[in-house]
Structure formats: structure tokens, C-alpha cells
């Protein structure tokens, strides 16, 4: 059959590549020191010297955006890693073995996924205090149920497949079946879910930082930059635009990528 064009995958991949590349660049090199304060250069509008202008401390916004994107991506990666690994493990075991534990955990996941992640993260932060580690752990734990639910469904479907049944009749151990037969089947659902989870993690982290409950200053974070910039919206609108556009670009890239991957899976 003729290969169908998938512009979403194409654009999403390109934008994601661009943002990840920019973040990687920011980790090793930025045009200016993102935390260097310069009273003389407060609120410079965007120019060739400062691509995206400077903020209220005279810091270079472009450098800060680069590093902020890196922070967002790193946090999102940790969050998704925690959520995906634990969620997949729990979902796999629940779906494969079933039983009362499965029933209970499924109900629990249903309840947790009904709550918006920002609200739950707020609760966790109010209990555990603010900070980067807390945010990563809080969001990571909150991402477990959505992955667990997805994997559970897939694993339960696999369990009833005839080739698994025959493997069991031949005396293959449960552990081997899980690793050799069920795990490879999960790739199809997990890859788009990871990309979409990444997307949600970036939004949640930005929201929490915007509320001052995520990454703490002076480390650059897109959410807290956006929150700071609001005070100077009239004086330095470019500050708010840069930080906000960076968040939107990250989310746009990963949402298109996730959408494209799902379409390819369906096609």
C-alpha cells in the first residue's frame, strides 16, 4: 500500500528536535551567563546583542530560556521515567495476574486519574514542601496511574491471546512470559503514551513553577520566568512572550509528535 503522509509526525518531530537541540545547546553553551546580573542592561528590548532582550536584573532572556527549556525537559524526563517504569510494572503485573489486588489498584488508578495533576501536585507540595526533587517525585507518582491503566489493558489482552495460553501449557514460567511475550507487545501503546506524558509533565511542571512551587530561583525555569515577567509586562513584554512561547513550543512539538505516532500506529 502507498505510504500515507503524516505531516503531524513530521512537524512534531522537527519542532521537538529543535527544542531538544536548543536545550542541549543551553546545557553546554549560552551566549551569556544566564544568572549574571547587570544593572546597566535592565529591560533591553530584543536586539542583535540580546536576541530576546534582558529582564529586570539585566539577565539575557535568550540564555535563560535555553536553560529553562533544559530544566523543563530534564524534569519532564524524570517524571515520565518514574511514572512509566513503575506504572508499566504495576500495570503489567495487575493485567497479567488479575485477582483482588488488580481490582483494588484499578479502582485506585481510576480515582487518581480523575483528579487534575496540578491539584494533586499542589497537595503533595503542601505536604512535602517545595523544591525540584519534591516536584519530580510528586509528579512522577501522579503519572503512575495513567501508565498503569494503559499497560494493564494491554497486558490483560495479551494474557488471553492464544500464543500466551500455549506458552503456559508448555510450562513456560510467568516471569519469562512477561519478559519475552508481553513486554514486546507493550511498545506500541507505550511509545505514544510516553510522548503524551512528556507533554503533560512539561505543562504540569510549568504550572507548578508558575505558582512558585516548582524549581526554586535563581535557577531558570520557564514557569517561574513567566510568573516574574508578569510584573514587568508593560515594561518588558518580550520577557513574558519568550518564556511563554518556549513553553508553548515544547508542548506543541511533543503533542504533534504524540498525535503523529498514534496515527501511524492506527494506520
Amino acid at each position: 500500500m502507498k505510504k500515507k503522509r503524516n505531516p503531524m509526525l513530521l512537524f512534531g518531530g522537527a519542532i521537538s528536535l529543535l527544542t531538544v537541540g536548543a536545550a542541549l545547546l543551553g546545557a553546554f553553551w549560552t551566549p551569556y551567563n544566564p544568572t549574571a546580573v547587570s544593572a546597566a542592561e535592565k529591560f533591553c528590548p530584543p536586539s542583535l546583542v540580546h536576541l530576546l532582550g534582558t529582564d529586570n536584573f539585566g539577565r539575557d532572556v535568550f540564555s535563560r530560556v535555553l536553560q529553562g527549556m533544559g530544566a523543563s525537559l530534564l524534569i519532564a524526563a524524570c517524571v515520565v521515567a518514574i511514572g512509566c517504569l513503575l506504572g508499566a510494572a504495576i500495570g503489567c503485573l495487575c493485567g497479567y495476574f488479575g485477582g483482588p489486588a488488580d481490582f483494588l489498584l484499578t479502582r485506585l488508578c481510576d480515582v487518581v486519574t480523575a483528579f487534575p495533576s496540578v491539584l494533586l501536585a499542589l497537595v503533595v507540595v503542601s505536604l512535602a514542601g517545595r523544591g525540584t526533587v519534591q516536584i519530580v517525585l510528586a509528579l512522577g507518582v501522579l503519572f503512575i496511574p495513567s501508565f498503569a491503566r494503559l499497560v494493564r489493558g494491554e497486558a490483560a489482552r495479551c494474557r488471553d491471546a492464544s500464543y500466551i495460553q500455549s506458552a503456559r501449557l508448555m510450562g513456560v514460567s510467568h516471569g519469562r512470559i512477561l519478559l519475552a511475550h508481553i513486554l514486546p507487545n507493550l511498545k506500541g501503546v507505550l511509545v505514544p503514551a510516553i510522548v503524551i506524558g512528556f507533554n503533560n509533565a512539561i505543562l504540569s511542571e510549568a504550572s507548578m513553577s508558575f505558582l512558585g512551587l516548582g524549581v526554586q530561583p535563581p535557577f531558570p525555569s520557564l514557569g517561574s520566568m513567566l510568573s516574574d515577567s508578569q510584573t514587568y509586562l508593560q515594561l518588558a513584554p518580550w520577557y513574558a512572550f519568550s518564556a511563554g512561547a518556549a513553553i508553548a513550543l515544547l508542548i506543541l512539538g511533543f503533542s504533534l509528535l504524540g498525535e503523529g505516532l498514534q496515527r501511524r500506529r492506527r494506520a
Binding site: 505543562l203 513567566l226 515577567s229 509586562l233 513574558a240 511563554g244 508553548a248 508542548i251 506543541l252
Partner: peptide, 9 residues
Amino acid sequence: SVPPFFLGI
């Protein structure tokens, strides 16, 4: 893809 709080700003 635009977060509501950015749209608000």
C-alpha cells in the same frame, strides 16, 4: 498547546 496562564498573560 498554549497553556491557559500564558494565554492569560
